[in-house]
Design a protein around this nucleic acid. Sequence first.
DNA 1: TAAACTACTATACAAAAGAATACGTGTCAA
DNA 2: TTGACACGTATTCTTTTGTATAGTAGTTTA
Lengths: 207, 207
Amino acid sequence: MKPLTDRQQTVLTFVEEFCEHQGYPPTVREVAAAFGIQPRAAVDHLAALRRKGYLHREPGLSRGLSLTSKSPGPVVEVPLLGRIAAGQPLLASENVEETLPLPRSWVRGEEVFLLKVTGESMAPVILPDDLVMVRVQSRVARGEIAVALIDDDATLKRVYEEAGGLVLKGDNPDFTPLRFSPDEAADVKILGKVVGVYRNLEGKRRG
Amino acid sequence: MKPLTDRQQTVLTFVEEFCEHQGYPPTVREVAAAFGIQPRAAVDHLAALRRKGYLHREPGLSRGLSLTSKSPGPVVEVPLLGRIAAGQPLLASENVEETLPLPRSWVRGEEVFLLKVTGESMAPVILPDDLVMVRVQSRVARGEIAVALIDDDATLKRVYEEAGGLVLKGDNPDFTPLRFSPDEAADVKILGKVVGVYRNLEGKRRG
DNA sequence: TAAACTACTATACAAAAGAATACGTGTCAA
DNA sequence: TTGACACGTATTCTTTTGTATAGTAGTTTA
């Protein structure tokens, strides 16, 4: 892309930050006011930026200005589930506490959701207050970490499907593995596989 | 958040998609035209959406409409550094391998960057191939995890500043702590504090 | 059953905002 | 030295756009 003059760069930065903060692009006059110049001068700058391919303007439309370059990288809105109930619609909007924009490269699969970890059973790999990303799938490979629903309680465990039944095991040795006979295993529903963990280390005593 | 009527939901969806496609929000009249109704009716819908907290309107401003709830949530482009050299400009574009859009709520601080972990010295909290988020700061509190630059080598360690000098210690007991006399400590530069860890669990044998 | 909310029509007006006109300055390459 | 270009001031015109007034109906809720 063609190089910008210093002045044009500051104008572009202003437009980018305005969009980010306000949620809508600035008008010609707002750009002018920000730099203490006349609208006409601002038009010249915006025209230069358009000519060099940094933004697009819809003629005649107020705020008809959109950024081309920067491009808010490919993001996917991933729902953070507050609670998980046995009631079918897992991703129903009532359960969605908020939705976080994550880079597409992190989101593996179509149906994914985030969950805030509560127990210590998966320590030290997964700790309380971690955010885990879960891909919805009803089966996981042996030994993989999954979200299992047991009587309306969602838990994070490694899953071992064996001839003798189903074993759900935490990494934390303080927790005894849960064993289910083939009959009982029907009450256990695998909601999905844990494909990622995010941990915030700010203001924590222990990692 | 308060529930929407069917009609309000379709209007909100229209606004969201308009923003996504055009890069700027629609005018009252554009909303009206899209549904074949009068501007006044569109105002009613937008007022309802604002009252229920789904969007924000700046009175009197054209296109002064911004999505609060859903929408491509506030993202910050965080640079993923490929290598870290002693040469001053840490976030110089030559060192930036790519830039990932992360939710603002995860990004604590002004200057942050991401780093891919290579060594095992911080296991089990931080493992190879993890992505750590680092906030640029030259000092960290005792025992916090920091990125330290020792002779052009960036390492992840807990930092203990003591009267007897500086100690850099990994969580992994297999690694012996690095000790620096007050004199030697001048060669160690703290680049920043580790404020977050992201781990991808896809295709791993063990967490 | 009254009050509040939703969903709309029709018309009008004033502020907001884009664009046009008319100039002035300095730089740089042909 | 002439013309293209970047950058700027000042003013005016016209369209776009938000908002207001004045109603009409149907639905929901207290």
